[in-house]
Design a binder for these strands. Structure first.
Lengths: 217, 217
DNA sequence: GCTTGTGAAGACCTTCACAGCA
DNA sequence: TGCTGTGAAGGTCTTCACAAGC
């Protein structure tokens, strides 16, 4: 009923599309804050995000009442609330499986840590790769996954193995208790309920655009 | 009315969610074909894809009637049709902008060419990088983009520059006539109508999963 | 008998439009 | 006056359920 503590849990379940938009709001609010903007209206946010103002207000209304009539939203307050809602006010430990060319690129990608995501373990199935050190990480055999996930409090997995092995890696991760998975393999593994997967497959992305190019070319 | 020539254009506009699913159907059908499966029902496809059979039949019905009552779908026939619908029965020329660490990884990624996507040009704004040869590609200055896109019949662009420059690269690509863009930068550029963009931002993907992890941890 | 293709129903999400409040 | 928060309306996508046909 009250939302004063900003711990308010959504009463009804929030549509996933809404959750997918919130990180974008966070990103734009961050930019506004850096520019020194203190207050923003749903109208202005909508312009920046190419979204209708009504949608922004509706999205936010799932979680509480963050604005002031006649004025708009306090940038810093809304940012704080959204980060807390999304769990972006803390750090998350991540485990990577597959330390080939792609896996190495992911380990050295400098964009994760500043956003609160720390790759704290990396696994491979090849004896040639296990034992190597990449970045600061000692590459472990996949057999150690469950134990390491427990010890290092890993909550998120990244799959960077060839498509043919993605499903078994998924299963191992789920078995180890991981419930959020970022999948770089060009395949869509079967996912048990309660586990979230995001696929980052560039080929699939391309294949879903060419349809719109036919005729034009 | 007839769909014999399989050139049938959809009568009403097809929902984008449908277009996003079709490449998955193609992928699974490819696997079935390699295993020697000749006929498949919407039920079986649904099991493999974790989608309801009704959805598969409805999706396909936007484009024609590809099945046989009582039997199901011919794998090879459906595959041919879907590839043609999506434009995956031909090759597409792609231009990359941003030849840093990420751009180099994209150029050397071996997954594009077998699926019909050829990176035929690469651009960078840094004089230190322009003139280098990466893979087989001579890195050109961004100023040459419009001309090269025309000469080499490029239809698709890949953005692999830092977030701060993604918007201007987008604008240049659109200016050069590109209408499909794969964006690796961690930002969502403003997109003019008629241009399709797919974002492959790993941080955004992670930020949209942590919500579901709260409580559990 | 089995499976497609599809209108109709239902679920879900977006947009409207306005009461309420600063 | 200006902008939020939100029921209600509208639109879109998914699922149902069954006639048609192999």
């Amino acid at each position: 009923m009250s939302n004063r503590s900003s711990r308010a849990k959504p009463v009804a379940s929030v549509p996933e599309v809404v959750i997918l938009r919130l990180p974008q709001y966070v990103r734009v609010l961050n930019q506004l804050q850096q520019k020194g903007t203190e207050v923003v209206s749903s109208q202005q946010l909508g312009n920046l995000l190419q979204v209708t103002p009504a949608q922004i207000r509706k999205d936010l209304s799932y979680f509480g009442r963050f604005g002031k009539q006649g004025r708009g939203y306090s940038v810093s307050h809304l940012l704080t609330e959204l980060k807390q809602i999304l769990g972006l006010d803390r750090r998350w430990n991540v485990a990577l499986v597959g330390v080939g060319r792609l896996g190495r690129a992911i380990i050295s990608y400098p964009g994760f840590a500043p956003e609160g995501f720390d790759i704290v373990a990396a696994f491979d199935s090849s004896p040639k790769i296990v034992g190597q050190v990449v970045g600061n990480l000692f590459i472990q055999p996949v057999e150690e996954m469950a134990e390491t996930v427990r010890n290092k409090k890993v909550s998120i997995g990244i799959i960077a193995v060839p498509a043919a092995h993605a499903q078994e890696v998924m299963d191992m991760m789920v078995q180890a208790g991981i419930r959020a998975i970022l999948n770089y393999a060009p395949t869509t593994p079967q996912t048990p309920p309660g586990v979230k997967v995001r696929n980052l497959d560039p080929v699939h992305a391309l294949q879903s655009m060419t349809y719109y190019l036919i005729d034009g070319a």
